[in-house]
Amino acid sequence: MFVVLIGGFLGSGKTTMLLELAKAANEAGLRVAVIVNEVGEVGIDGTRINAEGYEAVELAEGCICCSLAGTLQNTLITISSDFKPDLIILEPTGLALPHRVQQIIRTSMIRPEKVMTIGVVDAHRFEDLLNKRRNFMERQLMNADLIALNKCDLIGEAVIHRAVDELSQICPGREVFPVSALTGEGMGTIIERLI
């Protein structure tokens, strides 16, 4: 069993990417389970993901990297034993720190063969967010295995190059993939890493 963790700031396109990855994994014959976490007291994305035909558990009213850490561990164990997925895709809130979630997965006793963390960055708002909360963005991208510079369909080549250069400095040694989860552009390379 693999676990894919999709981290990134509010509105970076994590759920759209999740649906693209789930679709590709499903088409490859993998049994996919999804865990989504909402910070805003009511669940939204679980309904959408269920409507797309995937098994989704939605954890609302808290953040899985801090207040709901125990709930996440229990959910991982329950899904692993009851549903027996080949792949669990986990989407924390846009205010979570994914390296903390990695630690929770490691100590959850589900023993995945591999945990892959994708750091999703909104290319359209990248420079503004960097100016506003650089330190938090850097912490969100800590320990990501790869960076998906998302929403590249909304910006020009020059802005994409600047963002890729900046992200390469923030996350040295990590590959940065310009993609659009909405149009599917560039997603093939990320899907290849997963399946």
Partner: peptide, 20 residues
């Protein structure tokens, strides 16, 4: 930067949800 406490507090954000 320590790794204790809530990430929501750390980033200086808030959230709210309603249904009906």
């Amino acid at each position: 930067m320590t790794d204790d406490g809530s990430s929501i507090d750390e980033v200086g954000a808030a959230s709210c949800g309603l249904s009906g």
